[in-house]
């Protein structure tokens, strides 16, 4: 597929200084009072509440799923989160709690987080998760193959996993912290979208450099340009390292200024996070009660 290679390498290069300055400038916007309250509720609805630890137990996953349905038990007006994100083995446990609730159930698959497994293992992993009740699959691309220039292999893998997903949404994790350059991020975004991704996601959260504003900006530009060319809309999910309400609001500003209202919805934008939710809830409580909230009043997981 030499046309795939020429297409990806024919994409315009990313102006590194420009994209970082743009992201930093948009990060200085001040969002207050009623706009802030709306932003917090939207951000809560966009959270993919995540637990991806070797130590995850069924009890922890059940507790997390219950929290996803009702993040703030003290306040019934608090909306539920977008989805719960777990390992495939925990999908049936979370499904028991979430089924019929409208909160999506995402599962990482395809030998998360390294992606270093044979294709048939990855496909079996994916099918198991879907069979268990997951309606969103977060797959990782083979960064090794991508960096070696074997785009066709990465493309074919995504196509195969997309097929294994069946009706489930496919989120493709680029692991931008390992892609080294913004040009690579742009290429990987296009590659994933061309192969059929429903979402493109920055990171696994398992490497030191996770989601950053500039990387998300590059990806937002990619989904914008892709829709302009093909008419198909693709979602974006930054994941890892987003811990505060301030950070989350910076991302919302970035969406609004880059791709506009169409993406300001949990259907098209998600935050992969665990500790972010508690900070959002604390800020929400501050706005409703008028005094500063503390972590002692919210569950740990």
């Amino acid at each position: 597929m030499s046309d795939l290679r020429s297409l990806l390498h024919g994409l315009p290069g990313v102006d590194k200084v420009g994209v970082e300055a743009r992201a930093a400038a948009l990060g200085t916007r001040s969002v207050k009072t009623t706009a802030k309250a709306q932003a917090i509720d939207l951000a809560i609805r966009m959270v993919d509440l995540t637990t991806l630890e070797g130590a995850d137990t069924p009890g922890k996953v059940r507790a997390l799923s219950a929290k996803a349905l009702r993040p703030d038990p003290a306040d019934p007006t608090c909306p539920p989160v977008g989805a719960v994100c777990v390992y495939p083995a925990m999908v049936p446990v979370a499904f028991d709690v979430l089924k019929g609730s409208g909160v999506h159930l995402a599962s990482v698959a395809t030998a998360f987080p390294s992606g270093q497994a044979p294709l048939d293992v990855k496909l079996a992993d994916t099918r198991d998760a879907v069979a268990g009740g997951a309606d969103e699959i977060d797959m990782v691309i083979s960064r090794g193959a991508f960096l070696a220039g074997d785009y066709t292999k990465v493309f074919d893998e995504i196509v195969a996993v997309k097929e294994a997903c069946g009706p489930a949404h496919l989120k493709v994790i680029l692991e931008t912290g390992e892609l080294a350059t913004y040009d690579n991020v742009r290429r990987a975004s296009w590659l994933a979208m061309l192969a059929g991704a429903d979402f493109i996601k920055t990171s696994t959260g398992k490497v030191p450099i996770a989601a950053t504003l500039p990387v998300t900006l590059v990806m937002l530009e990619a989904v914008r340009d892709y829709r302009a060319q093909t008419g198909r809309q693709v979602g974006v999910k930054p994941a890892g390292g987003i811990r505060t309400t301030k950070d989350a609001i910076k991302y919302l500003v970035l969406i609004n200024e880059t791709v506009g209202d169409d993406w300001l919805s949990p259907d098209w934008f998600r935050f992969g996070a665990s500790s972010l939710l508690n900070d959002l809830l604390m800020q929400r409580t501050k706005l409703t009660t008028g005094h500063y909230a503390g972590p002692d009043y919210f569950t740990l997981d």
């Binding site: 409580t285 008028g290 005094h291 500063y292 909230a293 503390g294 972590p295 002692d296 009043y297």
Partner: peptide, 9 residues
């Protein structure tokens, strides 16, 4: 007053 009502103090 902000310290007095602060949940984390």
């Amino acid at each position: 007053p902000w310290l007095a009502s602060h949940d984390d103090v």
